[in-house]
Design a binder for these strands. Structure first.
Lengths: 206, 206, 206, 206
DNA sequence: TATGAATGAGATTTCATTCAT
DNA sequence: CATGAATGAAATCTCATTCAT
């Protein structure tokens, strides 16, 4: 917490801003608090970011840009679709339920109406890409004869819904007393339920 | 919009308040706007509700109290679990994606940190009850020999996740240009995916 | 407290108003509270008094008009000045320290700047008359050979000061924990101290 | 009044606040007016004091803390009690009737019910200490054989009452047309009256 | 570059007062 | 007469943003 001499860097400020927006929402977050958390003055904060909105947008974009690539495998190769899904889901649940990351869906949902550009950005850059990845994975499984699925573009939403559910549970409800979940365990159950439906007969794991 | 003579009633004011909170979030919503939308003065609004927080909380609770009972069947009888699920999901998706109702999860997610009591209430009264209903439905299916499911308390979250996904899509992303979804169609696909996993071999519909 | 049927009368309303002004001061007193205390509506209160200021002024004037005459003897006759003083002071202290009456100096002192006409009225009708009475009493004693006093118009203020001190002690300081005083005992000590100075040698009582 | 460049300091603001509270009472005083009187904005005033109540309390405490020590001699030495009283009373009357200082008893009396902590503070720090000083002075006189007094703890109140009377006369009644008093002359008459009673026979001055 | 100090523009909330019934 | 309901006009307080140093 002490920040004795080294000037705080931009990324750290963005992380502090995320914490503040996460805790209070956009409107209630105070520039003063972000600045003080970073050990600098409000005016110094304005030297780095032109406005509260700018900080907010950059805090979101920055996190997405840094986190998304490491979450999404781009190639399926000739790996089994089941294996890929069983690898991906626990990783995604873990990431999404980390408080730093969960901030994004939470804040997008809460402030989306006030920041349409940001909601649009999140939709385009995150939601659509994840959905396409999932749909692609299902098609990969169908192509390999592993899966049977009538409409991968709809089914992929069932997969994504489980992940969002886990993230919101963590960030919204656990702080007010909900029974804590184990993201990995939940991810596995989610994978089980979905794979039970996707896998063609005879190959079924569960 | 014109409100020529009849005095506006409490329920109408709550609906207007919901629209305002939905559009702007709690902090940015202005009492003045809610009052003007109802054709009364700010002071008259304070005659009915003691504070902005009070109107917010009541707007949320009121909607939940009025909508929840008509959504949740309490008895399964000896109906087929599959039928019950195929009846319930489209209904739930439809309700949840109506803008008036979708406001609730959106606002709970966005403002939950500032209104812990409300988040707790929503968790206890809505989330938990819906999850229990779904888990009960799965157990009903298992008891009837229809379903196979290792852990209904986890699987039920997969079901709920799809519904939340649909609601958020409607309220958060469609207004910024996302491709509109058909809730019923999505509900059916969701039911297909889940039932494919739950139904024991030989009974499978899809 | 219950006021089931008989319409509350003007004097009772004024007494309630005094209690309210006494407790909160003029500005912080609320018309609503006065009305409710009297079991009538705010609007009904306005039917009897044209404004808050009017109520206040009348509450003060009413109390003075009713209380003052019974406190001030108008004739000294050929009674001993010492006896008169020893009779008058305990009476005056008792009256002045009754909460209903103490309200007057307290509120005149506190709100005098906002109600110059009232302060003037109190000065003319109460303060001056009491001072004159006291000065007259001293002169009465001097004329009878009981008292020696260089300047009755100044000495009378010493007498009055003690009474005001007692009233303020009661109303201002006792409610916040000051040691309670016995008005009669204090009046007697006050009389002792003053008479010791006024009485000519050889007649001294103490 | 013109405040061309130098930034106004805290003590000046407190003095302006006292003037405002003195003129209007606590409730009717406006932060805007205090700020404008100091040539700064309302927000700048809030930079120095967190609330209206805080500025009020500090204005009172500040004045007491600065004025009280210079009014109260702590040592009697072997000076004549009569001399000490004849020195102290005119000084005290002068101070107490200065408008800047008379504000304190006036405001404590008027707002004491709304600021119990302040009334208590004034009682403990000013009233009690002054009463004790006076009682001590009387005992000092008794010990030196100068005074005779049955109960110094009651008699001291007669002394204090005269001073309060003078202060209130100045602040409450002179502004509405009361005949102005000369504090020093009144103090001397007060001293005469009291000393006439206290001094043992044969030493009497008057 | 950094900051302490300042502020303009609002937001919520409160009440004395009015008026239709 | 009585009142429930309404309101206009403030007043306190907050904060993103700026600027002189």
């Amino acid at each position: 917490m002490a920040r004795p001499s080294a000037p705080i860097d931009r990324d750290q400020l963005l992380a502090l801003a995320r914490a503040e927006f996460n805790a209070r929402g956009f409107a209630a977050a105070r520039m003063e608090d972000i600045a003080r958390a970073g050990g600098i003055s409000k005016a110094a904060l304005y030297l780095r970011f032109p406005s509260k909105e700018a900080i907010f947008e950059e805090a979101v974009r920055d996190l997405i840009a840094r986190t998304l690539p490491e979450m999404l495998p781009s190639e399926f190769g000739d790996n089994s679709a089941e294996t890929l899904l069983r690898q991906f889901l626990p990783l995604a649940f873990l990431r999404l339920t980390e408080p730093e990351f969960a901030f994004v869906p939470r804040v997008i949902i809460g402030e989306g109406a006030n920041f349409p550009a940001l909601a649009r950005f999140y939709h385009d850059e995150v939601i659509l890409r994840v959905l396409e990845l999932m749909a692609g994975l299902i098609r990969h499984g169908v192509a390999r004869g592993e899966f049977a699925c009538a409409d991968p573009d709809l089914a992929c939403r069932t997969i994504a819904g489980g992940a969002i559910f886990a993230a919101l549970w963590r960030v919204v409800f656990e702080p007010v007393g909900a029974q804590p979940i184990d993201p990995v365990q939940l991810a596995q159950a989610h994978a089980d339920t979905i794979l039970a439906g996707l896998l063609v007969r005879g190959e079924q794991a569960q």
